[in-house]
């Protein structure tokens, strides 16, 4: 059983990057096998994310984890948890910066995730033991996330999301900020789209991140970059032409089978049988509400 320990600027494993902060914490509680390492990337976003945002966060976490880059986030519901999970699934390390005491599990639903993070990474917090998750702890916690990370990726955020505060802290500290663009009609992406309008680099794939932060590019072995993100070369080849036609028209936005039928002029029966075949082949996943989206890989 790993015990929480107190580290301060005199400790050998004190993250040096924290000194970039004007109001650096005096010390931190740390609980876990692996503390913050450099370079690392913060993946943050809304608690109330869409399913596609959830998937994106998970796949970014996974790609970073597989490339050996630590993922930092806040263990909140939604995007944060998805990013942690993605990193853990890919066998990477991940660090959760908490807004409560080191011995408090918040949100309680993440008890299992918390154990996994402790085993494969660590939890850190500047709050005293037993501190409850108070509202004003979270913006403070965000500055630590921003300071630790080499870059911050905002996956989904509304205009009022706390993830934007992390992005602001990161920008003030000179860290690279990237935002995942979304539809201009999606409320869940309004914050990230605003960031992009204001000059933040859009995140279309992990390549953008590596290009923006040379430090990361140097840390990633060439072999980890074999599969260029975004390319679906060969993925369509294994399907018959009618199935390919549907996949090619699907885009990334979830669609309802009726929309597919109207767009392609197919009867509902044909749409259903083709989508059924694609679903079974794992090329299309169905989302709650009966919508369908292509699987990312």
């Amino acid at each position: 059983m790993i015990q929480p320990r107190w580290i301060d600027p005199s400790s050998p494993d004190w993250p040096a990057r924290l000194c970039h902060l004007e109001a650096a914490p005096h010390g931190l509680w740390l609980l876990g096998a692996t503390g913050p390492t450099a370079p690392c990337v913060a993946v943050v976003g809304s608690r109330r994310a869409t399913f596609s945002g959830f998937e994106i966060a998970r796949s970014i976490g996974g790609e970073l984890g597989a490339a050996g880059i630590q993922v930092i986030s806040g263990m909140a519901l939604g995007i944060d948890a998805a990013a942690h999970r993605g990193a853990l699934e890919a066998g990477g390390t991940t660090v959760a910066v908490l807004g409560c005491g080191i011995d408090v599990c918040y949100p309680p639903r993440h008890a299992e995730l918390r154990e996994q993070i402790i085993a494969a990474g660590s939890l850190i917090t500047e709050e005293p033991e037993g501190a409850p998750p108070l509202k004003y702890n979270f913006p403070k916690r965000n500055r630590i996330i921003a300071a630790l990370a080499s870059a911050v990726v905002v996956v989904e955020a509304t205009e009022r999301s706390g993830a934007l505060s992390t992005a602001r802290w990161a920008a003030d500290l000179g860290r690279e900020v990237l935002a995942v663009p979304g539809s201009i009609r999606s409320r869940q992406s309004s914050g990230t789209n605003l960031l992009i309008r204001d000059g933040v680099r859009p995140f279309l794939g992990i390549g953008d991140l590596l290009e923006a932060v040379p430090e990361l590019r140097r840390a990633v072995p060439e072999s980890a970059l074999d599969s260029p993100p975004g390319g679906d070369g060969g993925r369509l080849e294994r399907f018959s032409p009618p199935l390919r036609e549907i996949l090619a028209r699907m885009g990334t936005q979830p669609v309802h089978p009726d929309q597919v039928g109207v767009a392609l002029g197919l009867s509902p029966a044909l749409v259903a049988s083709r989508l059924g075949a694609l679903e079974l082949a794992g090329a299309v996943m169905s989302l709650p509400g009966g919508l369908l989206a292509p699987e990312p890989h």
């Binding site: 089978p257 029966a269 259903a272 049988s273 083709r274 989508l275 059924g276 075949a277 679903e279 079974l280 169905s286 009966g290």
Partner: peptide
């Protein structure tokens, strides 16, 4: 495949 489609949801 069509029958399965109505079941997958």
């Amino acid at each position: 495949a069509e029958a399965l489609h109505y079941r997958i949801e």
